[in-house]
Design a protein around this nucleic acid. Structure first.
Lengths: 134, 134
DNA sequence: GCGTGATTACTCGGATACAAGATGTCCGAGTTTGAGCGG
DNA sequence: CCGCTCAAACTCGGACATCTTGTATCCGAGTAATCACGC
């Protein structure tokens, strides 16, 4: 099991959007060039982020994407969930009288990771990068 | 991303082996019946566990599997790694001058989960089940 | 100049192609046990 | 009763077949800005 490349693209795109001027629109073409992905594929990923309410899109000439006004600083977890889905990483699929102990352990393990990811905001990275540049 | 069914089978098999008499050999057929999997497929999974040194196999008539003498109480993490591999869940694949901040966050997040899983032993579940039976 | 229409530069969505990995099956080979059989 | 052989019950490994999912491309539709042109 691995996180998909799509998640990678989504995270990098979000980081880029957090860094740039808030109101500034960025075209999919620019974002794709930065990451060396095809624009059409990236656009599909961004559509998911739009639907999750993390970014806004403006169509037409000079259109593009920018951060959503509400929720301008999403956590890693939100982004990951928007791409990978909300389903839990482990499902027992074995119907041994409910409440599989193994499943419970796995769920709890996942929560450890999610806890960390939900507290990690994109802006933290942006700040870190700025500090490092000097 | 999701954990594979193979991991599910492996965990359940290990739990079963931990519960049964330590020296007792259990055939793949029995283990497969319990989980409603084909024996041949399960045997492939168990081979991985053997190579990881968590169980031992005895071939021939009355043969089967049992816990390894050394390492008789593996952690969840060991089992999962034996099946899923050691690779980290997230890889940046974007060669932006090393040390991708996003990657670092993801690795750290993963460590949260692995920490928990490496401290969770199969025997704990076995004890819990016994306690619950009364 | 000033509206009006055409062109251009975008996003959006569906359909489709392709690749890789997970899942599962089949079969032949090696290994041990145990039963059967002959002396 | 002893030893030999043979069949049965296993694991092991490789080679497939199949299914699902991730990755990616193509195209047509919608939308907004800008340009060109006629009045």
């Amino acid at each position: 099991m691995k996180y998909s490349k799509a998640t990678n693209y989504a995270l990098h795109t979000m980081l880029h959007l957090v860094i740039t001027e808030p109101e500034q629109l960025v075209s999919v073409h620019q974002l794709a060039d930065l990451q060396k992905v095809s624009p059409t594929y990236l656009s599909k990923i961004l559509t998911k982020l739009v639907k999750a309410g993390m970014i806004e899109s403006t169509s037409g000439a000079n259109g593009g994407y920018r951060l959503s006004r509400k929720n301008p600083d999403p956590s890693f977890l939100e982004i990951i969930h928007a791409i990978e889905g909300q389903a839990s990483l482990f499902e027992c699929s074995q119907n041994h009288n409910e409440g599989c102990l193994i499943q419970q352990v796995m769920i709890h393990a996942e929560e450890q990771m999610e806890n960390y990811l939900s507290n990690k905001k994109m802006s933290e990275l942006a700040a870190e990068m700025k500090a490092h540049q000097r």
